[in-house]
Simulated assay, not measured.
Amino acid sequence: MTVTIRPVVQSDLDLVCRHREEMFRSSGHPEEVLAEMVGPYRAWQEASLEDGSYFGFVAECDGTAVGGIGGMMLDWPPHPLHPQSSKRGYILNLFVEPGWRGQGIARDLMRAVETDLRARGLSFAILHATQQGRSLYEKSGWKPTSEMARQI
């Protein structure tokens, strides 16, 4: 079976929202907190997909989504890690369905979003790592700071 990576689209709203909720659930966040987040996050996600401020990718196998990832460009003052730029990339919502983990899908999604951020003129990105994802990021060259960071 071949997994393909495609850009996220507006009709992926339910998928992105479910992936985010499952991502936080699998990292141990309490159900009552997740329940509070669902409505506000959906409203934010819908608007950000519509205006293009959220972009990303979906991994599919035979038309079924098996993973996804998001990206954003953040306004950020020039910084020693990106001294010529007032923007940095932000990677979020990396999620692979449990039955599909360990096959390189997360790595491929990360590569896709990093390539996209570079194409948008960015040379630096951040993300927040769960314990589950930390080794993936570190193997790919991300370095721990108060956030996870990597030159891209």
Rank of each mutant, 00 (worst) to 15 (best):
A106G: 14
G104P: 00
D75Y: 00
A106E: 02
T130K: 06
W76S: 09
S123C: 11
G28M: 07
A129L: 02
G71C: 07
E114N: 00
E97G: 02
M110T: 04
V66Q: 08
L109W: 05
T64D: 11
V58S: 02
T115F: 07
G133M: 00
G63D: 05
G70H: 02
P77T: 10
R120K: 15
R118N: 00
Y54K: 11
S123D: 15
G67R: 07
A125G: 05
M73H: 05
M37V: 13
H19Q: 11
V96I: 04
V58P: 04
G39I: 10
G63L: 01
L92H: 09
A47G: 10
S53C: 08
G89E: 02
Q84L: 12
A43I: 09
Q45V: 14
I69H: 03
E32R: 14
M73Y: 03
H19Y: 14
D108N: 12
M72F: 11
D51L: 05
V38Y: 13
S85A: 12
I91H: 02
P80I: 06
F95Q: 05
H128D: 15
P98N: 11
G63F: 04
K87H: 09
A47T: 07
L74I: 03
S123H: 14
R18I: 07
Q103V: 06
S123V: 12
H29T: 14
F24E: 12
E32I: 13
G71E: 03
R42W: 07
E22V: 07
A47S: 09
D108K: 13
R42H: 08
W76T: 01
C61L: 12
P77S: 10
I69F: 04
A47P: 03
A43H: 08
F57K: 04
L117N: 01
S85I: 01
I91W: 01
R107S: 08
P98D: 09
Q45L: 13
I91N: 01
G63M: 00
A106I: 00
H19I: 10
Y41V: 07
P78K: 09
G28F: 02
P40K: 02
G89I: 00
E22K: 11
A35V: 13
G39C: 08
S27K: 08
S26F: 14
E50M: 09
A43M: 08
G70D: 04
D62W: 10
C61N: 13
N93T: 05
V96S: 03
R120Y: 06
L117G: 03
Q45N: 11
P78V: 08
K87Q: 12
H19C: 11
M110A: 01
S85T: 08
I69G: 01
E36M: 14
S85Y: 04
V38K: 15
T64R: 14
A65V: 11
E36H: 14
T64Y: 10
Y54G: 06
F55H: 03
M37F: 15
G63H: 03
S86K: 10
I126L: 15
L74S: 01
R42Q: 11
V113P: 04
A47V: 05
A35D: 14
G28L: 04
G52C: 08
C17Y: 09
L49S: 03
V58G: 01
L117P: 03
G28D: 07
E31P: 13
D51T: 06
F57Y: 10
G104E: 00
V113M: 01
G28C: 06
R118D: 00
G102L: 02
Y41A: 12
R107I: 02
G133Y: 05
E46P: 04
A129N: 02
P80N: 03
S85D: 07
A112F: 00
P78C: 09
G104R: 05
